[in-house]
């Protein structure tokens, strides 16, 4: 049987903290009028976009550290595909 990977212990609390932050930003953004509300709404959207991508980065770096290079490359390619989509959207 293949060797078991060690879970990344920092990931669940980080996810929870980021989700709480997104919720707080979103609530402020939805309730408060004016520029402050708009900025908070922007931060909420930025945070929920960043959370899954940051998770891919963390997992990819973890795989690189333990020597699982093949899957580290897969994670990097996934991020490249997301980046390529952004470039195509601008063009």
């Amino acid at each position: 049987m293949s060797e078991l990977d060690t879970p990344i212990r920092a990931l669940p609390p980080l996810m929870l903290a980021a989700t709480i932050a997104a919720f707080v930003f979103a609530t402020v953004g939805a309730v408060v009028d004016g520029r402050a509300g708009t900025v908070a709404a922007g931060l909420a959207v930025s945070t929920i976009v960043a959370i899954p991508l940051l998770r891919v980065v963390i997992v990819g770096v973890h795989w690189l550290r333990i020597g699982d290079r093949r899957f580290a490359v897969v994670a990097a390619v996934l991020l490249a595909v997301v980046g390529l989509g952004a470039i195509l959207a601008v063009l």
């Binding site: 989700t19 979103a26 609530t27 402020v28 953004g29 939805a30 709404a41 909420a44 959207v45």
Partner: peptide
């Protein structure tokens, strides 16, 4: 993206 509408949906979805 309408940020205000996104914020309301984000808060509700969480």
């Amino acid at each position: 993206l309408d940020l205000r509408e996104c914020a309301a949906v984000c808060a509700g979805s969480v």
